[in-house]
Amino acid sequence: MYCFLRLSVLLVGLIVSAGSYAVNAVQPLTTADDLGPKVEQPIEFPHDRHAGDAAKGGMQINCMYCHTYARRSIVAGIPPLQKCIGCHQSIESVRETPRIKKLFEYWEAKKAVPWKKVHDLPDFVRFNHERHIQRFVFAQNKPVQEACGYCHGDVKTMTVARRQKPLSMGWCVSCHQKDHPVDATSTKTTHGPNDCWQCHK
């Protein structure tokens, strides 16, 4: 009996160490394998249809039209159902499609859509959307989708959003160590804050 136990412990140990070796071996920060977990959403929201390029049948809607708090608050915000309905009540062409039907079911039941979190940072991290959006979109005049994409990946090509970047501390710091221009016209550069309490709480 003990012999079996010992063997299984050894096996588990071997598997774990092999697994951790494999994790250590994978260094590139954004590879196809480095995606976050697939998150099942109550409605399969097509980001590509809303924010994608016009050439690929997208509407090119600004990220901040729906995630409206990103520029003025710590969190980007999930849009309330009213925002979806605001447009979709006057878009007759897709009204009978299964996803929109589901959307109106929530609307008629007066219930919020229970969206699931995709980019979930640990509780000890303080990340401020406002600071990043103000710096890159408003000061540096970067396109919104590029600025958001630094952390969120190419959401405009996804249906349901999935985490593409590791969102680990080393990954954050890799950008905070770089010099970024202060604004669109200036040659002056600064880098992101690198003291621990800026992000750790």
Binding site: F124, P193, D195, C196, W197, Q198, H200
Partner: peptide
């Protein structure tokens, strides 16, 4: 535990 630019003595629980 180290110093921040604001003159605070920071304590990082994770480390």
């Amino acid at each position: 535990t180290n110093h921040t630019a604001d003159g605070l003595n920071s304590q990082v629980y994770n480390r």
